[in-house]
Nucleic acid binder design. Structure first.
Length: 1039
RNA sequence: GCUGAAGUGGUGGAAUUGGUAGACACGUUGGACUUAAAAUCCAAUGGACAUUAGUCCGUGCGGGUUCAAGUCCCGCCUUCAGUACCA
C-alpha cells in the first residue's frame, strides 16, 4: 500500500490540522473588516497573562467556546470581530528579572511566543492582525493618554457625569466652590471667587487635585521595608510577608488614586442594563455596597467637636443608649476623661497591634472601653455614654456608630456584655433574648413623634426633624473605595507625569506619548526605598525639548524629575476591548468610524475571578469614556459568560511516621543523653523519609480495632501488626543502640500519615504509579523505597484540585494535540460538561470524541476513497440532518456546547447505520460541525466539493472554504411524524409502549389502549377509575 | 452569618412548558478479528429479587401539590465560590 492511499483512507489529523492552520493564516481567513454590509458581531475573550509555564488544558476552555460562537456567527452571516492579545505587564516577569537579571521584556516576548504557538495549534479563528500587548509602548501610549484624560476631568453630581476640569476652574473664578456638587476629597475648604483668584498657582493646583478623577493622596498601605514594596492583605501572613517572612508596617504613602467612588451609583444602576450572570452582578453590588440611611450629628458634652454617624435605621434613633467609636477615631484622644485615659490608651494600643485579619477573624470576642465622655441625644437631650470598640471599623462610614441595642445584634451583644441600658422602642416585640432587626415588621413605640409609625414613615419623619434642627440629613453610603493606582514596580506602564518646582504633578502633553519605560540596572527598589524606576539614570523630563533626559540635567526650572511609580495590572486591561477595534491607529485610541461600527462587545467570555477587579474598573473607565464622548455605550459588554474551571486530578504518595512516648513511672530515670536521643528518634521517625506506601496498604493500616472481636477483625489486626513490625525493625535497633529499652514506647495505634503530590504523568488511569520511572527521572525519589500491594502495584490516592504547577497535576494540551489532534481537544473540552461548571479533567475520556471523529471520517471515506455521491437523500437521512440542525442551533444560542457534541455523535451513528452517502446530507452536516471541529470539517468539505481527496495547497485561488458557508436552514417538515410510540403508564408507572397514529383522537387512543392485552394483564380485572390521554405525549391509567 | 451556584449510575454528564429517568461518552465485563498487541466491530452494564415473564426500589433528606415530580411548593442537610463585625 502506498503512503498516498493510506492518507486518504485514514483520518490523518496531524497533517490535516497543520495544513489548514497554514491555509487560514496565508489567506487571512479570519481578518475582520471595519466596514461591511453585514451586521457586526464582537466576540471577546479575556486576554491571558503569558506566564512562563505555558497553557494547560484548562486555559483554552473559554477560548474554544468563544471560537465556536464566533465561527457560528460567521456561518450566520455576521462580520465577526474575534481578537486576541496579551495582558503582558505583571509581577511574575518582574520577579524573574529580579532573580536572573533578565529584562522582563525578553521573558515576556518568549512567553508570548510559546502562548502563540500553543494557541495556533488549537485552530482558533482569531484575527491576529489586531493583537494587542499591554506592555507594548504603541499600546500603553493610549493607557497613558486615558490617564491624562482622567486627570483633566472632575465628576459633577449635578449632571451626574465627568466634565472637563476647565469647567470647574470657570466656576471657581466666577463664584468659588460653595455651590459645587462634585466628587472630591472630604477635607476641601470652602472659598470664594476672590479667594480663588488670589491663591497662588501652586495652591490652585493643590485644590484642583482634590477634584480630579485621578489624584494624588496619602494612602495607608502595608509597607514591607525589606522587600521595598507594598503588599496586598493576602500577601501578609501573621504580620510578616508571605514571601521571606519580613516584618510589615502600616505606612502612609503618597500615591495616585482613581475616583471610582464618583461612579458608584452609575456602576450599580448599569448592572440592570447588561446581560451578565446574576452571581457576578451580585458580587459587584456587594462590592459597591450601597446603603441608604441618614447621617446624624451628635454634640459632645463639654467639647466643641461633634460626632457624625451614618445609620441605615434613623427610625430607631430613640433607642440609642450609647455610641461606639472605632479605636482609631480621631476624637478618641480628645474626649477621653483623665480617669479613663489609661484604660482607653491600653485598648487603642492593643487594637493597633492586631492585624486587620485578626480583627476580622475574631468576631465572637466582645471588647471595648468607656471613654468617660457623653454625647447628647439630638431629640431627647439625654446623656449618651461614648465607648470605643473594635467592632466599629475606622474605614467604613464615619468610623462611629449610634448604638441601638434593641435593633442591632452587635450593639445588643455589646450592651449586654457591658451592662448598658437596652431601650425597647418596638411595639409588641420581646427583646429580652436578642435584638429585633426586621425592618418590615417594625412598629415604633416609646419614640415621641414617631410612635406607631412603620419603618418607612418613621425614617422619613426623623430625617425631616433632623434637618429642622440642623443635626442630620438623608444620606446614601457606599462601601466602594477609591482605587489606589500606583505600584512600586518596574514592569508596568510609566505615568506621563513629572513633578514641578513645587513638587506638584504635571501631565506631559499627549502628543509626546508614549513615555517609555527607562532601562535600569536593577529591578529592585533603590537603597533609599524608592521604586525601581529610581534606579534609572535617564528619567527626567525636559519641558523645552519635550523628551526624557538624563537625571543630572534636573534643574527644576526646565528639567524635572519624572514619576517613579508605575500603573497597576488593571490599567492596561480597562480599555483593551475598544482598542481591538482599531489597534494600529497611531493618531487616536480608535477611530470614530471603528467605534461607530463595532459599538461594544456583544459576547465576553472569561473567568469569574475578575468579577470585582477587572470587570468593575473596566466599567468605570468605559463610563468615563462615554461621558467624554469617545464611546457610544456606557457599558462595554452586552453579554458576559463565566466559564468554569477545569480541575486537575492530583495524585498522592503516602508516608507514615511513629510517635514516641516516654515510659511513665517513678522507677524510670532519664539522663540528659536519653532525652537527647529520644528527641533524635522523634525527629527521625515522626516521618519516615524515603519510604512510600501504596494507598491500599495505607487504608489497611489506618483501620484498627481497639477490641477485635470477630475472626476477621483479629486477623486484620494480626496482619497489621506484622506489617508494622517491618517498619519498626530499624527503630527497635536504634532503641537498643541508645539503651533506651523500656524507656520509650512506640505508639502503633496512632501513627502519623502524610501525603505528598506526585506528578500525574507517572500515574495511569488505574491509579498505579510507575515508580521505577519516577525513581529514574526525579532526583527527589532516587533512593526512595516503594511499598507495594499484593499485586506488586503501587496505588496512588487521587483528589480533584485546581490545576497548578505546584500540585503536579497540570495536563499540557500540546501532547494531546499530537496524540489526538486539536479537533479532538476542542470537542472534548466542550463534551466535558456545561461551560460555566467546574469539572475535573480526565485525559482517558478523550478517546470517546476521537473515536467519533474517526467515525465521521468513515462516513466520507472507505477503502475505495470518497463515498459521497449525488444520490437523493432518504426520508431518514433528512430527518437525522434536520433534527441535528435544530438541536445544534438551539444549543449554540444557549451556550450549551456539551449537548451539541452528543448530538453530532448521534447523527453520525445514525447516518452510518443508514449507510448515507448523499452529498445533500453530508455537506451541510460539515457546516454544523465546523465551529466545533474546524479542521476536519474544512478538509472533508473541500473533498466533497471537489469530489476527491484534495489538499489545501491544491485548491484553486478563488476557493472560499467553509468558514462563511451559510448555516443550513432547519426545515420542520422533515421531522413531522405520523405516529408516536406512546408510553402507557399505570398509576404513573410506565409499563409498556404502544405505537399509535398521531392524528388519532383521544377517545380512539383510549379504546386502543384498553383493548391491548397487556392493559388487561396490568389491570388484572380491575376497572380503571380514570384514563388520562395527552395526545402526542402519554397515556396514564389510574385505578 | 449573608449572597450566588450546585447535589442524578463506578465516572463526566443528558432529560423542552411537570409526561418513557440515566441520552451521549468514559470505565468495566464478555465475545469477534489478530501469531500477538494496537485499532476496529458486536453484546451487556443504576440497585435488589427472579430460569423466563416480570416485580420492587431509585435523581441529597423529610413533607406536600398532581392522574403524573429530577423538574413545582414548604422545611432541612451537604458541597463549592464570593463576601464579611458594613452600622
Amino acid at each position: 500500500m502506498t503512503k498516498g492511499v493510506y492518507k486518504i483512507m485514514n483520518y490523518n489529523f496531524n497533517e490535516i490540522e497543520a495544513k489548514w492552520q497554514k491555509y487560514w493564516a496565508d489567506n487571512k481567513t479570519f481578518k475582520a473588516k471595519n466596514q461591511s454590509d453585514k451586521p457586526k458581531y464582537y466576540v471577546l475573550d479575556m486576554f491571558p497573562y503569558p506566564s512562563g509555564a505555558g497553557l494547560h488544558v484548562g486555559h483554552p476552555l473559554g477560548y474554544i467556546a468563544s471560537d465556536i460562537y464566533a465561527r457560528y456567527k460567521r456561518h450566520k452571516g455576521f462580520n465577526v470581530l474575534h481578537p486576541q492579545g496579551y495582558d503582558s505587564f505583571g509581577l511574575p516577569a518582574e520577579q524573574y528579572a529580579i532573580q536572573t537579571g533578565q529584562h522582563p521584556a525578553i521573558t515576556t516576548k518568549e512567553n508570548i511566543a510559546t502562548y502563540r504557538r500553543q494557541l495556533d495549534q488549537i485552530g482558533f479563528s482569531f484575527d491576529w492582525s489586531r493583537e494587542v500587548r499591554t506592555s507594548d509602548p504603541k499600546y500603553y501610549k493610549w493607557t497613558q493618554w486615558i490617564f491624562i484624560q482622567l486627570f483633566n476631568s472632575w465628576f459633577n453630581y449635578n449632571t451626574n457625569k465627568a466634565e472637563n476640569i476647565s469647567v470647574l476652574i470657570d466656576v471657581f473664578n466666577n463664584e468659588g466652590n460653595a455651590n459645587v456638587n462634585a466628587a472630591c476629597d472630604d477635607d476641601v475648604e470652602i472659598f470664594s471667587a476672590n479667594n480663588w483668584k488670589n491663591f497662588s498657582k501652586a495652591k490652585q493646583q493643590q485644590i484642583l487635585l482634590q477634584y480630579r478623577l485621578t489624584y494624588l493622596a496619602e494612602t495607608e498601605v502595608n509597607w514591607c521595608p525589606a522587600l521595598g514594596t507594598v503588599l496586598a492583605n493576602d500577601e501578609i501572613v501573621n504580620g510578616v510577608s508571605e514571601r521571606g517572612g519580613h516584618p510589615v508596617v502600616r505606612k502612609k504613602m503618597t500615591q495616585w488614586s482613581m475616583r471610582i467612588s464618583a461612579y458608584a451609583e452609575r456602576l450599580l444602576q448599569g448592572l440592570d442594563t447588561v446581560d451578565w450572570t446574576d452571581s457576578l452582578k451580585e458580587s459587584q453590588r456587594n462590592w459597591i455596597g450601597k446603603s441608604v440611611g441618614a447621617s446624624v450629628t451628635f454634640n459632645v458634652n463639654d467639647h466643641e467637636e461633634t460626632i457624625e454617624v451614618f445609620t441605615t435605621r434613623p427610625d430607631t434613633i430613640f433607642g440609642v443608649s450609647f455610641m461606639t467609636l472605632a479605636p482609631e477615631h480621631e476624637l478618641v484622644s480628645k474626649i477621653t476623661t483623665p480617669e479613663q485615659k489609661a484604660a482607653v490608651d491600653a485598648y487603642v494600643e492593643a487594637t493597633a497591634k492586631r492585624s486587620e485579619r485578626d480583627r476580622m477573624a475574631d468576631v465572637k470576642t466582645i471588647s471595648g472601653v468607656f471613654t468617660g465622655a457623653y454625647a447628647e441625644h439630638p431629640f431627647t437631650k439625654k446623656q449618651i455614654p461614648i465607648w470605643i470598640g473594635d467592632y466599629v471599623l475606622a474605614s467604613y462610614g464615619t468610623g462611629a456608630v449610634m448604638a441601638v441595642p434593641c435593633g442591632d445584634q452587635r450593639d445588643y451583644d455589646f450592651a449586654k456584655h457591658f451592662g448598658i441600658e437596652i431601650l425597647n422602642i418596638f411595639e409588641g416585640v420581646d427583646i429580652s433574648e436578642q435584638a429585633f432587626a426586621d425592618k418590615d415588621k417594625t412598629i415604633i413605640a416609646n419614640s415621641d413623634f414617631i410612635n406607631g409609625m412603620n419603618y418607612k414613615k418613621a425614617t422619613k419623619r426623623v430625617i425631616y426633624e433632623l434637618e429642622q434642627i440642623g443635626q442630620g440629613e438623608g444620606k446614601t453610603n457606599y462601601r466602594l473605595r477609591d482605587a489606589v493606582f500606583s505600584r512600586q514596580r518596574y514592569w508596568g506602564e510609566p505615568f506621563p507625569v513629572y513633578y514641578d518646582e513645587n513638587g506638584l504633578p504635571q501631565m506631559i502633553d499627549a502628543k509626546y506619548l508614549p513615555i517609555e519605560l527607562p532601562e535600569v540596572e536593577k529591578y529592585l527598589p533603590t537603597e533609599t526605598g524608592e521604586p525601581p524606576l529610581g534606579n534609572a539614570t535617564k528619567w527626567a523630563w525636559d519641558t523645552e525639548k519635550n523628551e526624557v533626559v538624563e537625571n543630572e540635567k534636573i534643574d527644576n526650572k526646565t528639567v524635572f524629575p519624572l514619576e517613579l511609580n508605575t500603573m497597576p495590572g488593571w490599567a492596561g486591561s480597562s480599555q483593551y476591548f475598544n482598542r481591538y477595534m482599531d489597534p494600529n491607529n497611531d493618531e487616536a485610541i480608535f477611530s470614530k468610524q471603528a467605534i461607530d461600527y463595532w459599538q461594544q462587545v456583544d459576547l465576553y467570555i472569561g473567568g469569574s475571578e475578575h468579577a470585582t477587579g477587572h470587570l468593575l474598573y473596566s466599567r468605570f473607565w468605559q463610563k468615563f469614556m462615554f461621558d467624554k464622548g469617545y464611546v457610544n455605550h456606557d457599558e462595554f459588554a452586552k453579554k458576559l459568560i463565566n466559564q468554569g474551571m477545569i480541575l486537575g486530578e492530583s495524585a498522592f504518595v503516602h508516608r507514615i511516621g511513629f510517635n514516641f512516648g516516654k515510659t511513665v513511672g517513678s522507677k524510670v530515670d532519664f539522663s540528659k543523653d536519653d532525652l537527647k536521643n529520644i528527641q533524635y528518634l522523634r525527629d527521625k521517625y515522626s516521618i519516615i523519609k524515603n519510604v512510600y506506601i501504596s494507598n491500599d496498604v495505607i487504608i489497611y493500616l489506618r483501620k484498627t480495632f481497639n477490641k477485635p472481636e470477630s475472626e476477621s477483625e483479629i486477623e486484620h489486626m494480626n496482619l497489621r501488626k506484622s506489617l508494622i513490625s517491618y517498619f519498626l525493625k530499624p527503630i527497635e535497633e536504634e532503641i537498643l543502640k541508645f539503651n533506651l529499652e523500656g524507656k520509650v514506647m512506640v505508639n502503633t495505634m496512632m501513627m502519623n500519615y502524610f501525603k505528598t503530590h506526585v506528578p500525574v504523568k507517572y500515574v495511569n488511569t488505574k491509579n498505579e504509579l510507575n515508580w521505577e520511572k519516577l525513581r529514574q527521572e526525579d532526583k527527589q525519589y532516587k533512593n526512595a523505597e516503594f511499598i507495594t500491594n499484593k499485586e506488586n502495584k503501587y496505588i496512588c490516592k487521587r483528589d480533584v484540585e485546581k490545576m497548578s504547577k505546584s500540585k503536579y497535576n497540570v495536563v499540557n494540551p500540546d501532547q494531546i494535540c499530537v496524540d489526538y489532534g486539536a479537533d479532538s481537544l476542542r470537542l472534548y473540552e466542550m463534551f466535558l460538561g456545561p461551560l460555566e461548571q467546574y469539572k475535573p479533567w480526565n485525559t482517558a475520556g478523550i478517546t470517546g470524541v476521537h473515536g467519533f471523529l474517526k467515525k465521521l471520517w468513515k462516513l466520507y471515506f472507505d477503502d475505495n476513497g470518497l463515498k459521497v455521491t449525488n444520490t437523493e437523500p432518504t426520508k431518514d437521512n433528512l430527518k437525522t440532518l434536520h433534527k441535528t440542525i435544530k438541536k445544534v442551533e438551539e444549543d449554540i444560542e444557549n451556550f450549551s456546547f456539551n449537548t451539541s457534541v452528543s448530538t453530532f455523535m448521534i447523527a453520525v451513528n445514525e447516518l452510518l447505520a443508514q449507510k448515507c452517502t448523499s452529498k445533500a446530507i453530508l455537506q451541510p452536516l460539515l457546516v454544523l460541525i465546523s465551529p466545533y471541529a474546524p479542521h476536519v470539517a474544512e478538509q472533508l468539505y473541500a473533498c466533497v466539493e471537489f469530489g476527491k481527496y484534495i489538499q489545501p495547497d491544491e485548491l484553486p485561488n478563488d476557493y472560499k472554504g467553509i468558514s462563511e458557508v451559510a448555516f443550513p436552514k432547519f426545515d420542520e417538515s422533515y421531522l413531522v411524524e405520523s405516529s408516536k410510540n406512546y408510553p402507557i403508564s399505570f398509576n404513573g408507572k410506565m409499563r409498556f409502549t404502544m405505537e399509535l397514529p398521531l392524528d388519532m383522537s383521544k377517545e380512539d387512543i383510549e379504546k386502543a389502549v384498553m383493548a391491548h392485552e397487556k392493559t388487561q394483564e396490568q389491570l388484572a380485572g380491575r376497572t380503571p377509575k380514570k384514563v388520562i390521554v395527552v395526545p402526542g405525549k402519554i397515556v396514564n391509567i389510574v385505578g
